[in-house]
Nucleic acid binder design. Structure first.
Lengths: 351, 351
DNA sequence: GGACAATATACTCAAAACGAGCATTAACGG
DNA sequence: CCGTTAATGCTCGTTTTGAGTATATTGTCC
């Protein structure tokens, strides 16, 4: 397929070509790992599967929970995604539905052990969605694999009951103090703008998609346990569940991605039972997005997109007028370009 | 922070933990490569830096062009992005502005040589933006590194002069024939829906962001040279510039990502000169998105977002009433959460 | 200087989308 | 039958958007 007759002109400063043999030290001490953000959600909260690393009887000295992780086995797996699916399904008995790649994390300092000579681990993060009913099948290792509400890791992300107290009481003051500590007046201003835009303060509205940006800001301000270097005092740390390494960052990436994706692609299905009422759908979307929606407008939007159709059944178990039962239109589910569920109202703009 | 007293029951089928030592064959024959989609754009067309693998004087038998590629050197680089920046800047003399990770490509069949025992190359694709003025500085290896309009790789993506002829004349008939070849009636229908949604046929509007989806559909239908297996006839192939390996797929990912990103983040700046007229800005956005926009509405949108401010200067070299000169508001450029340039108009919905 | 070509910029107007709420309907438990 | 609870239907003012028309400002050609 290739031929090169006149490579005599090639010189040393050219771009390295794909098929050049790698330097011998390149494939030394390099491991590719696959991390999965596995999400299921009921009407109350989305849950994430985490691996509990506490050894039996360990107290706070045990390692923090981590995301499920598996090595990528180039000899066995044709694609990255099949590698992911195979170890997840083998080890948790979960049937993964939708799977999407999130991001590849490769910073050296993502793992302190690397600095001490361990192999460099480059980790490819994936988002996977499973139906809530599937959650039971993960009990195979109930002590190790547990489902946790994703809001336990990001308590500031749940605005369903209004602005979370933790924001006004703790986060905003600490962030403001951090901003004030900046070197120059310009830097202080820059930090303030960034805080305001990211956390929806002042004229900026709260944007539920900026999960990662908020996490990284808090991390930078050393308000997150994982960011606190050894030996430094950490009284400012915001109460929330920590994770190992940079797993909370990966999780934040997943949460943000899912929150934005539901708006333009029909992925909520993957989390819903096959039949449901519009209220159930709304509650799920609210759980994911972390904000409350205007019921009538939500209905209007959902019906307009043509994503769902009625099954003809009526459900009367919530103590009011019975609700129609819906299902997602199979044609839409099969196709990927279909739109998602727009989020209407209850504007959180004004606090 | 947490305690679990009864982990005595933990058994061997638990999820593999992050710090487990990898199997010894894991880091054998595995290389991480960094691919860059480097984009610059003038008012006529966005350009992509490709490495010309054709040796001087070689004909069509030379290898197809590829994206610039460099190995990731875990010992030298703290982060993936710094690894990318360093080899790109060293080898092309380009000053990269905005850089963002696209996707990690790891399918085994992305490179036929792997099947013959070569090392598995997992490639992390990046999108990098440089100002058009920077394009000159890549001449360092003019024979090797050349800029090509991205529409030479995807001629069907340029709707600025109306629907490209190639669509109606070639692509749509071939796709339709491919759909008809499906196994079952249901499969035929499913393919047809997918084609219609992806290529904006019938009631679906053309969505300029679906660059990757369109490419993959064409690939599946074997209308792309790269998809044609050896020995199979290829008369249906759509005339367009091919690339090595899966590089055209990576490029499609980059184009799609950029097209969507300009709409919600202020990244056009990175491609624009510091001062410009609104028409210049519009032409650039049109070049990127591949469609024409309604001038007055574009102006309205841009001015509303507050992304730009006037410099006070007037430019009168285009033969009409002089235009105001604008620049991006530095405060906005510094911050990332700022909105992008919405695309108004001239609906391509109805053909 | 005046018509004209070419573009910039201002303003209009109707349709659609959106936020917010009120009103009505259909079940259930007493 | 009445109160409670939720589903569903409808309205209405505000924004946003698509698509123009109108006006302003320059250079050029005669």
């Amino acid at each position: 397929m290739r031929s090169s007759s006149a490579d005599i002109f090639a010189n040393g400063s050219q771009l390295i070509e794909p098929r050049n043999a790698p330097d011998s030290d390149l494939d030394h001490g390099l491991v590719i790992g696959l991390n999965a953000v596995i999400v299921a959600s009921d009407e109350h909260s989305p849950h994430v599967l985490v691996v509990n690393n506490h050894p039996a009887g360990a107290g706070d000295d045990g390692r923090a929970a981590s995301l499920p992780f598996g090595p990528f086995h180039p000899l066995q797996h044709r694609t990255l995604e099949s590698g992911l699916r195979s170890w997840v399904e083998a080890q948790t008995a979960l049937k993964l539905g939708y799977v999407e790649q999130l991001y590849t994390f490769g910073d050296r300092d993502r793992d302190p052990e690397e600095e001490r000579g361990g192999p460099r681990v480059v980790s490819i993060g994936y988002l996977a969605l499973v139906r809530d009913a599937e959650r039971d099948s993960s009990v195979r290792n109930a002590q190790q694999n547990i489902w946790r509400s994703w809001y336990s890791f990001f308590p500031w992300e749940d605005w369903r009951e209004g602005k979370p107290d933790i924001l006004g009481a703790t986060i905003e003051p600490h962030l403001d103090a951090w901003a004030a500590r900046a070197a120059s007046a310009a830097a202080v201003r820059s930090r303030r703008t960034r805080i305001a835009q990211t956390f929806g303060i002042g004229r900026s509205p709260w944007n539920e998609e900026l999960v990662l940006e908020r996490y990284e800001l808090l991390f930078e301000a050393e308000l997150i346990v994982e960011a606190v270097r050894e030996g430094v005092c950490c009284e400012n740390v915001i109460p929330s569940t920590a994770m190992a390494l940079d797993h909370r960052r990966i999780l934040a990436t997943g949460v943000g991605r899912l929150r934005s994706k539901i708006k333009y692609r029909p992925v909520v299905f993957e989390l819903m039972p096959p039949a449901f009422t519009l209220l159930q759908l709304q509650l799920l979307v609210e759980a994911l997005s972390g904000k409350r929606l205007h019921k009538q407008n939500f209905r209007r939007l959902v019906e307009k997109t043509g994503l769902v159709e009625t099954t003809g059944q009526k459900i009367s178990d919530t103590g009011g007028r019975p609700a129609q039962q819906f299902r997602f239109r199979p044609a839409v589910v099969a196709e990927r370009q279909a739109p998602g569920v727009k989020l209407p109202g209850l504007r959180t703009t004004v606090e």
